[in-house]
């Protein structure tokens, strides 16, 4: 089957800290695992600083996919801003956190407080 979606992005070096990103099945929006369930707000993403937390989050993602809530959950390595907000290290994941660069009026960047 042809893939129309590529889940992870290749990031070199450290995989932590990380957040968990996915697509919402019914809405299609990019969502992040937050402290309590999934959120559309990139600033509310839960941050894993250690491998154990990352593994628990990943398992939570898999369970949500199995429960037909989200699609393609994957861990996204991030850098933290001065305010402690997670910014994806790969430009592709960063695009998902923000929205299209050509339409600043659309996507997360239009709906939520910017990450940086």
């Amino acid at each position: 089957m042809a893939k129309d979606h590529r889940a992870g992005s290749k990031v070199r070096g450290d995989k932590l800290p990380a957040i968990l990103m996915a697509s919402h099945l019914l809405e299609g929006d990019t969502v992040f695992l937050g402290d309590s369930g999934w959120t559309m707000d990139p600033t509310a993403a839960k941050i894993a600083h250690d491998a154990e937390t990352a593994a628990v989050m990943e398992a939570e993602g898999k369970a949500a996919a199995a429960a037909n809530t989200v699609i393609d959950p994957y861990l996204v390595p991030v850098d933290l801003t001065d305010h402690g907000l997670p910014v994806a290290r790969h430009f592709r994941d960063a695009m998902r956190q923000k929205g299209p660069s050509i339409h600043p009026d659309m996507g997360k960047q239009a709906e939520f407080t910017p990450l940086d």
Binding site: H5, S23, G28, D29, T30, D72, R92, M95, R96, P100
Partner: peptide, 15 residues
Amino acid sequence: KPLRLKNGLYLQLHA
């Protein structure tokens, strides 16, 4: 997925 694709529905980065 193949069923939705045959109806033109992709999943992209944001939606």
